[in-house]
Amino acid sequence: MRRLFPVTDQTDETAVREWGLGELADAYAYPSGEGPWLRANMVSTLDGAAQHDGRSQPISSATDMRIFGTLRGIADAVVVGAETVRQEGYRPPRAREAFAERRAAAGQAVAPAIAIVTASLDLDFTLPLFAEPLVPTLVVTGAAAPADRVAAAQKAGAVVVTAGEGAGAEPQRVVRALAERGLTRLLTEGGPRLLGQFVAAGVLDELCLTVSPMVAAGGAQRIAGGPSMAVPERFELASLLEEAGFLFTRYRRT
């Protein structure tokens, strides 16, 4: 892999090499500060498909998955929609030795928590995500969520976080509610509907987008769904890495 931006000596072709996990963690470190920071990590083909046959893995790569693991390895919580949990077969994050010292120094738990944003709580609470997590899984919903499903989640050991007055959670309140629990380094992995909600609410601080050198055609979703914004929001390029035709971009809100 090589760095294309910001320009350094690693832009030279002779500097192409595999980066260690520590180097990747440094490259993707969260900005210092007291407030929460919401980062999204997504992958897209050249023609805009965020998935193929309902999953993102076919358009990914080994290096993309290393970055995926690194972003998880430095986050306090991974925020994800219920549909993505079901489609991608989410499992509880594991403690990784490569990030143990870094997490301990930052006062983080041994692994990130999974925070599932859902209105219906239509989840299988017998899955390892609830039965075997190193850090309790969070279910983020609204005050009017189905009481029986809330009770089922709590019985399964999940922590139910209220972040809205209706059945579902409100994007701004999701970020605030997690920050109140000390979870300020936030990473969302989608899906597109959830990311679209965060974008429309103006609470997305950073987008890490892998551009896959593939075309897929068909009717696959974009990385963000939902209604259009009245005025598109401008982000600026923070860094750009490349390997084997894959571009690993990082954009921050201007």
Rank of each mutant, 00 (worst) to 15 (best):
Leu207Met: 15
Val211Met: 13
Pro146Glu: 07
Val231Ile: 11
Gly107Pro: 01
Met65Ser: 14
Thr141Met: 11
Val203Gln: 11
Met214Ile: 13
Glu34Ser: 15
Ala15Pro: 05
Asn41Pro: 01
Gly35Leu: 12
Ala179Gly: 07
Gly190Ile: 07
Gly157Trp: 05
Val43Asp: 03
Thr45Glu: 03
Asp122Tyr: 06
Arg102Ser: 09
Val117His: 03
Tyr30Asp: 08
Glu34Leu: 08
Thr162His: 10
Ala113Ser: 13
Thr162Ala: 04
Arg55Asp: 13
Gly190Trp: 05
Glu206Gln: 09
Gly22Lys: 03
Val79Thr: 01
Gln172Thr: 14
Gly218Asn: 08
Gln10Asp: 15
Gly35Tyr: 00
Ala100Pro: 10
Leu134Thr: 11
Gln51Met: 13
Pro192Thr: 09
Phe248Ala: 02
Phe248Thr: 01
Glu101Val: 10
Ala144Asp: 13
Pro93Gln: 08
Gln172Leu: 12
Thr84Leu: 03
Gly81His: 04
Phe246Val: 01
Leu138Lys: 03
Ala98Val: 14
Gln108Asn: 07
Arg86Val: 12
Asp47Leu: 08
Leu247His: 03
Gly48Lys: 06
Leu46His: 05
Ala104Ile: 11
Leu21Pro: 02
Leu123Ile: 14
Ala75Gly: 04
Ser61Val: 03
Ala145Asp: 04
Gly245Val: 02
Arg176Tyr: 04
Asp64Glu: 15
Lys155Val: 12
Gly226Ile: 03
Ala216Met: 11
Arg222Asp: 14
Arg102Thr: 09
Pro227Arg: 10
Arg176Thr: 15
Ala217Ile: 00
Leu187Met: 14
Thr8Ser: 15
Thr70Ile: 09
Cys208His: 10
Val117Ser: 04
Leu134Cys: 03
Arg149Glu: 12
Gly225Trp: 01
Met65Ala: 14
Pro192His: 10
Ala169Ser: 06
Leu204Glu: 04
Arg86Met: 10
Phe246Ala: 01
Gly182Glu: 13
Arg252Glu: 13
Arg91Gly: 14
Leu178Ile: 07
Leu207Tyr: 06
Thr249Pro: 00
Gly157Leu: 11
Ala179Ile: 04
Pro213Trp: 09
Val160Ala: 09
Gln87Val: 14
Val150Glu: 05
Ala100Trp: 07
Arg72Ile: 04
Tyr90Asp: 10
Gly73Tyr: 07
Gly35Arg: 08
Met214Arg: 12
Thr188His: 04
Ala167Leu: 11
Leu127Asn: 06
Phe68Ile: 04
Pro227Trp: 01
Ser32His: 12
Gly35Ala: 15
Gly168Thr: 02
Thr126Gln: 14
